[in-house]
Amino acid sequence: MKYTEEHEWLRVEGDYVVVGITEHAATQLGDVVFVELPETETMVAAGDEVVVIESVKAASDILAPVDGEIVAVNSKLTDNPGLVNEDPTGAAWFFKMKLDDLSVLDQFMDEDEYNDLIG
């Protein structure tokens, strides 16, 4: 598992990377009440706002961690946004991206480095 400074986790599955938010991020957001997912088969650039999450407190975005194609989204979150709080690192993944070269993920933090970040 890799981690971004935006508190996303990235898990490699074959040629794909699965993206979600960390437990820390889910706790900070509070109860999630709305999730808007991107279209599949869209090309995105690193830093693009691809998911909107609204909690009881505020709206926030999830950014594409790297360039690539969105190949799948977790539509369960549309009907059950609370899954983000219940199982942020498992059932509540947001989207899968196809990458040309998985080595772009090397730039991100490993678990120890991420734990240092959130202190």
């Binding site: 509070g30 109860d31 009440v33 009881v56 407190k57 709080n85």
Partner: peptide, 12 residues
């Protein structure tokens, strides 16, 4: 205090 550990939804 904006919330306690239970969170806004449960508190409401």
């Amino acid at each position: 205090p904006v919330q306690y550990p239970a969170g806004v939804m449960k508190e409401h």
